[in-house]
Design a binder for these strands. Structure first.
Lengths: 202, 202
DNA sequence: GACTAGTTGGCATTAACTGCCAGGAAGACA
DNA sequence: TGTCTTCCTGGCAGTTAATGCCAACTAGTC
């Protein structure tokens, strides 16, 4: 059941978010203070920090949910799907599950143009990666029988970690290019090109 | 000519660095304040911030020079060396040009255990990547003749960017694994394993 | 209509920085 | 050697993000 508190909270969150992104776009991220956002959104600074733990969360906040969605999608791919294809399927879902392309573009530009935001974004992304590694690890274990023995000792298997990191490197590369070209190119296309350049097929 | 000012500055920098890293290792990064570092290093807080622009620079500071070295090494590889091999050669140089392995290990652990440091470290690394992309781009242009046309218009070529990003993703993966295993594994070996997992050879 | 529980806003505080200015030490020059 | 310039240092005040605490408030409960 959706209580009035929930509703008014959602309204407040949306108002804060709209105000913040508008101000960031107008004056830049660093030049906008949290106090100003709170003032223009009609809320106290203290409450703003209760909704969004940090200023950076105003931009990269709702990525936790997205990460969860990504992980579940990858997990639910059929067993015969390769690790690469499973990850690709997950990314596909995230792309379409996103907000309006305009806002995504706006946020992407903001992130790639603001070093501190970029750092925070990467930090969140690293958490996605860490969660995905065991999923990919499992998928690798069943399918292949390479010499890289998976001993149950301290010997690590870097493959899953490397694959996940590479996929995200390509996503990043594609997204930055996409944002720098104002979204006129096809993001999935760019990603495929990146992966082709790396894996040498295509 | 090396003036006394230069010398005493180097001494001060070293003292600050030693104090900082010791304290970080003892109490953790977040739990250590800049005021404490300054006090124990016998310098004013104001001067500390003149030497190191930010607290994070105390850990990831001297990477600018390393980035330059990396770029030059890659650039100076013979023309017939592939992009991948050129990058690998550059990494090899950086590894050996590093400080003592103990300190590298200590710093790596610190970085991988502290989210904000990890993010900042990657941010610095992104700058290396950006500088390397044109170098790799040139190397790609001469050697290969794939259909991905390099038109001199707004159409971007994501290949170089993707390759560089992937190489660094593998470096990261290998370094983290290496640090987590207290440096008992061979870093170059781990890197090769990562790349093999990604490119599907080996 | 009272009671509980969750929410909000103000106040104080901390920690990372930054600008400003006075004082001091290094180096140049007579 | 004495002076003068130049650069460096330290202290102080101020800004900004972020956190803890407490009093006032308000939605949901009985």
């Amino acid at each position: 059941m959706t209580t009035l508190w929930d509703r008014s909270r959602q309204v407040a969150v949306q108002a804060i978010l709209d105000t913040a992104i508008r101000l960031f776009a107008e004056q830049g991220y660093e030049q906008t203070t949290v106090a100003q956002i709170a003032r223009e959104a009609g809320i106290s600074q203290r409450s703003l920090f209760r909704y969004f733990g940090t200023k950076e969360d105003l931009v990269c906040g709702d990525q936790e949910a997205l990460g969860e969605l990504l992980k579940q999608t990858v997990e639910q791919q059929p067993a015969e799907v390769s690790a690469w294809d499973a990850l690709r399927a997950g990314l596909e879902v995230i792309l379409t599950a996103n907000h309006t392309p305009e806002r995504v573009l706006e946020l992407s530009r903001l992130i790639f143009d603001t070093p501190s935001l970029q750092a925070r974004y990467i930090e969140k992304r690293l958490r996605w990666q860490a969660e995905l590694v065991p999923v990919i690890q499992a998928r690798l274990g069943t399918g292949i029988g390479i010499g890289t023995g998976i001993r149950p000792g301290p010997a690590p298997d870097p493959r899953a970690k490397a694959i996940v990191a590479t996929v995200f490197a390509c996503v990043d590369t594609a997204t930055e290019l996409w944002a720098r070209h104002d979204g006129r190119l096809d993001l999935a296309d760019l990603y495929d090109q990146c992966l082709a350049a790396v894996r040498g097929r295509g």
